[in-house]
Design a protein around this nucleic acid. Structure first.
Lengths: 212, 212, 212, 212
DNA sequence: AATGAATGAGGTTTCATTCAT
DNA sequence: TATGAATGAAACCTCATTCAT
């Protein structure tokens, strides 16, 4: 007999834990994260993590899952609405940018995972990522057939997009430390992340389109 | 009075440690790496790491330094030989590709460090990275003035280049796990890393050139 | 919601650790003491020391604090009850003797700390020691004004008292190894610690009183 | 065939090691002392300590021996020159004071050793200390028979003398940290060690003499 | 005699996980 | 459910001692 109130509270606790865990995993990586700190920051007893979720690995998987299930869902919708391949590609890139932007910590976790060779990536997620690439393949193919896109290697385009977006996010704090000289460059250096991302979008479109 | 033999052996030991450490840090990250394993894999007594180099943090810093001082040096040379801005940019990209390709583990470490916000990055290295960007700025400016390049945001171009190259390297193991359907895509998926990188190079050139 | 039983057990664990630590620190000194042994002798998991108290330094400081706060409290009470300065001085000495006698290990720790120049002594304790000296100063002054005590240097008297008492305690095991000749001396050598202390008390009174 | 020069240099090295070791052992105690630091401070290769002297225990024993053989020798001479028991006692106390004063570090080591129960004290030294007590016994007996001294417990007198002198030396740094109030006491607190020792001498004489 | 390198045992501390209440 | 206490494995680091040159 679990009352609704209890169920709600339980869900809330679970959520608090996951959100905190995402933050810590993003900051410290899997090995660097401490169950103690996660519990403390979530104002939850350490044993409760084990009770509600499971051990460190499970918690990590859950965090990944949480990030992705949230993200991919929102992702797949808005592309069909676009008409031309160019518009679709633009939509596609904006989706990725938005998705990553809305999940603070997600970028860092993703990037780290890549570095590990993704040994900890659950298959579900791999499958989801694969779907995303296939969507890109479709868009590029369509554009090629219509004559508006060049012939390109979709994996290379994918690397370009994801790599640049992730790096832009994760390198942001470092970038501010760069010493640069001419004042005009200094201004560009300080520009907000969104502008850089917008320019990346344009560059990728230029790279793919037949002639700008 | 230290014999030459001893001095040589000492350098060798130091080197063995650093090389092994680079490998392990790349694979497991800072927190995940184990001093024990580094010592074992380097076939060196654990205490020797502390004797020759220092504690874990120092070892890590040394590894970073080793990677960068090796890399950046090789880097800055070959660009002046190129004549046209396009050729220079190509040279520039190939240099980055080569440099990262020749330092196994460097990519993973770099990428992780980004994820941390680079808190552990020594200033020297930041300065070096800055120099690399400034080189890119010069090349892009020159191309613009000559009318062969579009007007671009150099930071965005930098993110595109470094992000894509790093991701291509670090994601290589994951990529092989992608399930993809049409056999022609499957073939592309399996293509060696060098081909993807070549295609990335082309894409970036396209993105920057006025009209391909 | 912590049950009373748990709270009691917690206090008990803390106490067990502190008591054992006092013993070990007294026997082996700070550097010589082993956290392992303290844990084993206290029948407590090693990590519990860190959980309940802290690292080795903190444990040591806690032990010092424990000794002193226990001691000084009991100390300051009984002197006011005495009437004549002579009686007060006697009371004072007996208090010190008792206090040190009741804290096995305290003497050794104190003595060692002196040898270090007390670098590790918390200020609180220094202050407490200072209070004790000031009490002695008062007693001696009062006796002088009344004409029953000689004019003396209170610091010298303090050294005499504390030095002799501490040494009597700490040197007890060594003393038994002294080879002495005439049987009557041998008998004195073997006398229990309390008799020596009593005689020290008398000697100090004689040293201070105007004429025995 | 060892040349004289070599022998001299060897002795010099030995001496440097012993002197440094005395200093370090005095400061850090046996367990706290580090062979590394001793070697470094003596500007001697670590292995040389083992070559010239032996392992840590042996080094420590050697330091103790060095302190005592130097000290006790000088000690036993000058007492016979005195005529009255009172003069002899004064002579005796001054000898102890001087001996301890001239061996910086000796006091600290001695005091620590007492705290350990002197487990590491060689028998030779115990015997020497015994001789010193017997000298005191003789002086006190003589004085009693002549009617100038009270009947006293020689062990108690010995504790008084040694305890106070050692404590005065070892506690000197701590004493300066005592907060004391009336300016006249403050002045006394700051007085040099020699004055306190002189006053201790007087106090002990008063304690033993029949009527001051 | 002298040096720098090496060794191995052991010391302090941390941390994921579980237990008792 | 929730808490503080407990556990044991292992991680980092140190240090006395020895070796090779």
């Amino acid at each position: 007999m679990v009352s609704k109130k209890q169920a709600a509270k339980q869900a809330e606790t679970r959520d608090k834990i996951l959100k905190t865990a995402e933050h810590i995993f993003a900051r410290d990586g899997y090995a660097g994260a401490r169950m103690d700190e996660i519990a403390r920051m979530a104002t939850v007893n350490k044993a409760m993590i084990y009770y509600h979720i499971g051990n460190k690995r499970v918690l990590y998987a859950e965090v990944l899952h949480h990030i992705f299930s949230n993200a991919i869902e929102r992702f797949q919708t808005s592309i069909h609405n676009a008409s031309t391949p160019e518009e679709k590609l633009r939509q596609y890139l904006r989706n990725i940018i938005q998705t990553i932007g809305q999940n603070p910590g997600a970028a860092a976790i993703l990037v780290r995972e890549q570095a590990t060779g993704g040994a900890d990536f659950p298959d579900v997620i791999i499958k989801d990522m694969s779907k995303i690439i296939m969507m890109l393949v479709d868009i590029l193919n369509q554009g090629q057939r219509q004559g508006s896109f060049r012939e390109t290697n979709p994996f290379a385009v994918h690397m370009l997009a994801i790599g640049a977006i992730l790096l832009t996010h994760t390198s942001y704090p470092i970038r501010r430390r760069f010493p640069v000289e001419p004042p005009e460059i200094e201004r560009q250096k300080k520009q907000p992340i969104e502008i850089t991302l917008k320019d990346i979008e344009t560059l990728i479109l230029n790279a793919v389109r037949k002639n700008g």
